[in-house]
Structures are given as structure tokens and as C-alpha cells.
Amino acid sequence: MPRSVWKGPFADVLKKLPHVYRGTRRSMILPDWVGKTIEVHNGRAWRPINIVEDMIGHRLGEFAATRTKSPHKGAVLRARAMMKKKKGK
């Protein structure tokens, strides 16, 4: 369910560091943030995000993926086999 309009957008205060700002995943991107680089934690590392106008109204967490894609095991085996063939020639 979306947030009530009368409450306004929710945004935590950005923590200012020497070169970048750090924000929380739950914060909504505000128009004041356009042009800034904000670091967002994805559970493992801080990911820098450059804020542009199209991001206004979205959450910071949408731009810091928490999961990595792992290739299918069969595709990995096929790729290794192709590399061995190329080296053998």
C-alpha cells in the first residue's frame, strides 16, 4: 500500500561524508538530491548512485540490488568446454 498523500514523502536525513552522502534504502528520492552521489548499502557493500531527475519519487533501495545473478550450471560447463577447445587449436 502506498503512503498517504497528506503525510508527504518519507526521507531519512542523509549522512554527509567527505566525498559522498549516505542514505537509507527506505528513503524516497527528493528533488533536492538531483545531481548528488548517494551511497546505499545493499547488504554487503555501499553502492554509489548518481541521482537524476527520473529517479524522483522512487526509493533509494530500488537502485541498489541486493541479489547477484548466478549463471546456470550447464551454461558454465559449456563455456569452459569451448575455452578448452579454443586453447587446444
Score class of each variant (00 low, 15 high):
residue 3 R to K: 15
residue 3 R to M: 12
residue 7 K to H: 09
residue 8 G to E: 12
residue 8 G to C: 06
residue 8 G to H: 04
residue 9 P to C: 14
residue 10 F to I: 07
residue 10 F to L: 13
residue 10 F to Q: 09
residue 12 D to Q: 10
residue 13 V to L: 11
residue 14 L to M: 04
residue 14 L to W: 06
residue 15 K to M: 12
residue 16 K to H: 06
residue 17 L to R: 08
residue 19 H to Q: 04
residue 21 Y to I: 11
residue 21 Y to R: 09
residue 22 R to A: 04
residue 24 T to Y: 03
residue 24 T to P: 00
residue 26 R to H: 05
residue 29 I to F: 11
residue 30 L to G: 05
residue 30 L to Q: 13
residue 30 L to V: 09
residue 34 V to S: 03
residue 37 T to W: 01
residue 40 V to F: 00
residue 41 H to W: 05
residue 43 G to I: 04
residue 48 P to M: 03
residue 49 I to Q: 02
residue 49 I to L: 06
residue 51 I to W: 02
residue 52 V to G: 13
residue 54 D to E: 14
residue 54 D to T: 15
residue 55 M to E: 03
residue 57 G to T: 01
residue 59 R to D: 09
residue 60 L to C: 02
residue 62 E to N: 15
residue 63 F to D: 03
residue 63 F to Y: 06
residue 64 A to Q: 00
residue 64 A to N: 01
residue 66 T to P: 02
residue 67 R to S: 15
residue 67 R to W: 08
residue 68 T to K: 12
residue 69 K to D: 09
residue 71 P to L: 10
residue 72 H to S: 11
residue 74 G to E: 08
residue 76 V to F: 14
residue 76 V to G: 02
residue 78 R to C: 07
residue 78 R to N: 12
residue 79 A to C: 12
residue 79 A to R: 10
residue 80 R to N: 07
residue 80 R to T: 12
residue 81 A to W: 06
residue 83 M to A: 14
residue 84 K to Q: 15
residue 84 K to D: 14
residue 89 K to T: 13
residue 89 K to V: 13
